[in-house]
Amino acid sequence: MNALRRTVYFTGIVALCAWVLVPIYFIALGAFGGRIGVFRWPKSILPTDTSLAAMQLFLQVEGVGQAMVNSIIAACITMALSIALGAPAGYALARFTFPGQNAYRLLILLTRAFPLAILALPLTVAFIRIGLYDTAFGVALIHTALALPFAALVSASLFQAIPRELEEAAWVFGCTRLQAFLKVVLPLALPGIAATAIFAFVISWNEVFAASVLTVRNRTLTAYLLTVLAESPLHFRFAGGFLLIVPSIVFIFAVRKYLFAMWGIANR
């Protein structure tokens, strides 16, 4: 590439990085700018009005703290459930050929073609009857349905990447199937499974529609923000948005090595 093409190319890369990062910077400014920052005109790109006080004020608003706790609970349950259900399914898909495996894969893919969260509507009625309405656990169940296909398919690729011969060697040397799995396969698959779990957490943390439909008093953070959005002052909205973003970015950073491999595989 000659010099001109090179400059254009690298400018493009930098510009696209800025395109992603600058808006996040702006909402951070908005979150920490408080009431003063929101009404300043024109806005400056430097953090002039920022203070921790603004964010603290937001956190003290009634309902915010509890909403965050609910979100965390729901996300943790989602994480645990989707791995508990998805990893064994992934192992089955990776290691066995059996009639019905394609039907199962189809079922999994089918959930993608449907707006899954919308299926929360009939579940409202069912949950009321069972007593799961307006609970973090109920929300977690729907979120698990959202994350499960992903967890199963990614686990399948993870296990497939571990050579079958390693397990077979363990069998030859006296291990049962379960022992071989625990001693040989699991340690190798663990980083990938941990990454999948974290991604399930993020999916739950971010989900808006089902959480809003299924909760009234015990709202998750997304549900809370959605319902008070219209009446909230701007700086609260920004603070809420910022709070929503931060854990996700931190987690995605933690699993970035697997992120690309996981999404690429799961969408085959």
Partner: peptide, 26 residues
């Protein structure tokens, strides 16, 4: 790649709020 995929982890609600900060009157 990591920078460009940051939006993957961002809720659609949060993304809306991000652009609200940019597009809003002030």
């Amino acid at each position: 790649l990591w920078i460009w995929t940051i939006p993957l982890g961002i809720s659609d609600l949060a993304a809306g709020l991000v652009w609200l900060a940019i597009l809003q009157d002030r």
